[in-house]
């Protein structure tokens, strides 16, 4: 490990760590994951449960990107440059999943 007496270090005081917001975000993320597990066991599988999972996931993604990756504190331009393309990916996802359902229905009906 490193020596604890680096002579090239400036002699200035090191400020105290400010970690309150970091741990708060951590507990929010753990809490949201715990809620997801509660739903996984307490609720019957279905569209409603899936919707809850996706909403909770978006909340988790928000906290990771906004707080941990600091995007919330960047300029508006950077925020839009990152979020807008991702919105298009979400659109593609919805479009292709319904395409999958259509494909499934057409092949099952075709071979009937």
């Amino acid at each position: 490990m490193a020596t604890h007496h680096d002579h090239d270090l400036p002699a200035g005081e090191i400020p105290k760590p400010q970690t309150k917001a970091i741990w708060k975000t951590f507990f929010i993320l753990v809490g949201l994951t715990a809620v997801e597990f509660a739903f996984a066991f307490a609720m019957e599988a279905g569209t409603a449960r899936n919707a809850i999972f996706i909403i909770l996931t978006i909340f988790k993604a928000f906290y990771i990107v906004a707080e941990f990756m600091h995007l919330k504190h960047e300029t508006k331009g950077l925020i839009w440059a990152v979020l807008l393309p991702m919105a298009l990916v979400a659109w593609l996802m919805v479009a292709l999943i319904s395409e999958g359902s259509y494909y499934f229905e057409s092949i099952t009906n075709y071979f009937k």
């Binding site: 990916v89 593609l92 996802m93 292709l96 999958g100 494909y103 499934f104």
Partner: peptide
Amino acid sequence: AFTFGALLIVYGLSRHAHL
């Protein structure tokens, strides 16, 4: 994220294309 998005989209599509 586009690459991972593509993989998850393929997952969703394949899953809906199966019983």
